[in-house]
Design a protein around this nucleic acid. Sequence first.
DNA 1: GTTTAAATTAAACGATTGTTTAATATTGTG
DNA 2: CACAATATTAAACAATCGTTTAATTTAAAC
Lengths: 208, 208
Amino acid sequence: MGEKMTKREQILEVAEELIAENGFSGTSVRALAAKAGINVAMISYYFGSKEKLFEALVEYRAGFLRGKFQTLNKEVEDPMERINQMIDAYVDRIFSHHRFHRILHRQMLSTKTTVNSENIIGILLRNSEEVKKVLREGEHKKIFRKVDVEFTIAMLIGTLSQIAVSCMLSSRIIGVNPQTESIYDESYKERTKMFLKNLMRNHLTGNL
Amino acid sequence: MGEKMTKREQILEVAEELIAENGFSGTSVRALAAKAGINVAMISYYFGSKEKLFEALVEYRAGFLRGKFQTLNKEVEDPMERINQMIDAYVDRIFSHHRFHRILHRQMLSTKTTVNSENIIGILLRNSEEVKKVLREGEHKKIFRKVDVEFTIAMLIGTLSQIAVSCMLSSRIIGVNPQTESIYDESYKERTKMFLKNLMRNHLTGNL
DNA sequence: GTTTAAATTAAACGATTGTTTAATATTGTG
DNA sequence: CACAATATTAAACAATCGTTTAATTTAAAC
């Protein structure tokens, strides 16, 4: 798997892993270089600086969902069905790139505004705009009842973050034994999708 | 306000502020000492080390909600009313100590197990056990429908975290101008309470 | 094979990290 | 005041931080 990666991409993959685990300031370029099997100087050589490596990582993984959401907004007629498919896409993406999303959500817990945080927020804001569209459309068509649109989106993001990203707590709440099973098993993914779909249907329509 | 604080507590308050903003490894003991107006050596003098200062901070703020939740579980008969009062208490606490909760949630995004993370998870797990009780009781009494209890708790924690802790994104989603108003205004607190109560009522009973 | 460019290396840079030391200042007690 | 305990200080500690340098190896082009 991943045979044809450039050295640059290999560094980014290792950076994602380490930063997801220890945070940005908790990850030293030496630890990164050691794990990637390269010389420390290569990081400055390829990216310029540690900061710019981080920016490159965000670029590397960014813009994943927006295209999918836009397509769904154009091609799927029924708002409820559209919501369901957005949930599927969102959950799939987070489960397959949970390390990167851990980095995103950790960054969002910072109050400092950096080049990176502006990029990251921009990405997530554009996604949330697509969700807003379907919520507003469903309400206008009297299919959804009147809900707090902004908080509904925050609820979606927050719930998924809690279940799939902040796994340290949720695995304990759910009762997963990290030795034998993982939060990122297919069964938990499906359970997450079902939970979110039921939740949203009750929240938006009240129909069981 | 807070006139009668010991020097130790003053240091903890400053530590909370800085760690909430820059993270644990992003906060140097020198920056901390400078902001607290003390000598760097005082941190080792009072706490032993930077790590132990962090542990002391967790101790300092811990165990806030559990007592309240236990009282509610004993004294409030109606499960739905109990959920509502738990939401009130939970939202109040997070809004009044959002810096500390930012630290908690950031810590939970780590995959590394430290002395601290075990403490923190223990605190949150005990709280979630109290919520589990009322959910199970309501279901048993046929007042609530059958729901995914663990994911429901994750949803509560995650939503509140997203709205009130991860304010960098949510203020942008909600459209708050940080110059003129704050996420932590009373109006947003009430809006959060109302949203969560409506959400939970629809989720648990389906009654509007 | 020679020349030129790109990739990689070990070593050193100064700055900053958390912590300790030893001297000094402050406070409380008799 | 004198004495002891506590609090506070500036300075130094070794370790690690991100980054740069200058030399060397590898790869590509002709």
